[in-house]
C-alpha cells in the first residue's frame, strides 16, 4: 500500500533537519549584557531594596522628618488600615478602565489589521500621535470636555440622566481619564498580534461556523490572545499606579487612588516616607500577585 502514497510525489516542503538559530556562547554575551544589566541593577533593583528598608523604618520621636533603621511592619499596617479604600479604588478603577479600553481597542485594532488596507499607516499614526500632545494637557482637556457647562454634562443634565449633576469630581471622570490615557497601550499589542495572524484562518473559521460571533470567539480572539494579554497588563499596571487622573479629574477625597496616597505621603506629609514606601510595596505586591494569577490563567511564554 505504501507504494500508492507516493503517486505524484509529496508536495510538502521539507524543513531543515537542524534548527539553525545562531546562538553563541562565550564572554561576548556578558560584555553585551554588562552596561544594561548594571544600569537596571543600580537604578531599579537597588532603589527597590532601599525603598523596602525605608518601608520598615521608624520615626525618630521628637525629631520630625528623622527616621531610624528598624524592622517596623507597623508601616504596612498603617498603609492597609488607613488606605484600603484607596487600594480598592485603584484596583477597581484600573480594572474598569482596562475592560473599557479593551472594548474600545479591539474593534480599532481589528479594523487596522484586516479592514484598513492602504489606510493602515494613517490609522497607526492616528493612534500614536495624541501621545505627543502632553498627557497632562490631554487630561486637562478631558476636564474641560466633561465640565458641568460642557456639552456632555449639559446634555445628560437636560435629560436628567446625571444624578449628581456633575461628571468631573466623580469616579466616572477618573475611569474615563484612565481609559483614555492608556488606550494606545491596549491597541498596539492587539494590533501587532492580529497583524501576524493569517486572515485566511479567520475566513476558514467563518466557513466552519458561519456565525460571526462564534468565529470571533473560537478563532480570532484566541489568535490575538498574546496581544490582549500584553495590552491588558500595559493598561492595568500604569492605571493602578496613576494619580494624575484622580488629581485632575476626581474629587478631593472620595475618588483618590493609592498613587495619590503615596504622592501626598512623600511630598506633603512630614514623617510620611516610611508609610509612602510601605504603600508602594503593598501596591507592587498586589499588582504582581494579580498579574501572576492572570498570566497563569491566560498566559503564554511569549510575554517574556
Amino acid at each position: 500500500m505504501s507504494a500508492l502514497a507516493h503517486i505524484g510525489g509529496s508536495t510538502s516542503g521539507s524543513a531543515p533537519a537542524a534548527q539553525p538559530t545562531p546562538t553563541k556562547r562565550g564572554k561576548v554575551a556578558y560584555l553585551l549584557l554588562l552596561p544594561g544589566v548594571l544600569w537596571l541593577i543600580v537604578f531599579f533593583v537597588v532603589p527597590l531594596v532601599q525603598l523596602f528598608t525605608v518601608s520598615l523604618q521608624s520615626k525618630f520621636p521628637g525629631y520630625p522628618g528623622y527616621y531610624y533603621r528598624d524592622v517596623n511592619f507597623g508601616n504596612y499596617l498603617t498603609a492597609v488600615v488607613d488606605y484600603w479604600p484607596h487600594f480598592a479604588r485603584s484596583l477597581l478603577y484600573a480594572g474598569l478602565a482596562t475592560l473599557l479600553a479593551f472594548i474600545l481597542a479591539y474593534p480599532l485594532a481589528y479594523a487596522m489589521a484586516f479592514k484598513a488596507g492602504k489606510w493602515r499607516g494613517v490609522m497607526m499614526i492616528c493612534v500614536i500621535a495624541p501621545f505627543f500632545t502632553s498627557f497632562i494637557l490631554r487630561t486637562i482637556a478631558w476636564r474641560q470636555i466633561l465640565s458641568d457647562d460642557g456639552w456632555i454634562a449639559s446634555a445628560l443634565n437636560a435629560l436628567h440622566l446625571l444624578p449628581g449633576g456633575h461628571i468631573t469630581e466623580t469616579w466616572v471622570a477618573v475611569v474615563a481619564g484612565l481609559t483614555y490615557n492608556f488606550l494606545p497601550f491596549m491597541v498596539l499589542p492587539i494590533y501587532a498580534s492580529l497583524e501576524r495572524a493569517d486572515p485566511k484562518i479567520i475566513e476558514a473559521g467563518g466557513d466552519l461556523y458561519a456565525n460571526g460571533l462564534t468565529t470571533f470567539r473560537t478563532v480570532t480572539l484566541p489568535m490575538s490572545m498574546p496581544g490582549v494579554l500584553a495590552g491588558t497588563l500595559l493598561t492595568f499596571i500604569p492605571a493602578a499606579g496613576d494619580y494624575v487622573n484622580a488629581e485632575l479629574l476626581g474629587s478631593d477625597i472620595s475618588t483618590k487612588m493609592v498613587g495619590n496616597g503615596i504622592e501626598s505621603q512623600f511630598f506633603r506629609v512630614v514623617d510620611g516616607y516610611p508609610t509612602a514606601a510601605a504603600l508602594s510595596f503593598t501596591l507592587m505586591a498586589a499588582i504582581l500577585a494579580l498579574v501572576f494569577l492572570y498570566v497563569r490563567k491566560y498566559g503564554t511564554e511569549e510575554l517574556l
Binding site: 509529496s10 521539507s14 531543515p16 533537519a17 537542524a18 539553525p20
Partner: peptide, 17 residues
C-alpha cells in the same frame, strides 16, 4: 523524504554545520 539527512549533508558541504 524530509528528515532523511539530505539537508544536513548539504549544510555540512556549505560549512553551515
Amino acid at each position: 523524504p524530509s528528515g532523511c539527512g539530505k539537508t544536513t549533508t548539504l549544510r555540512m558541504v556549505a560549512g553551515l554545520e
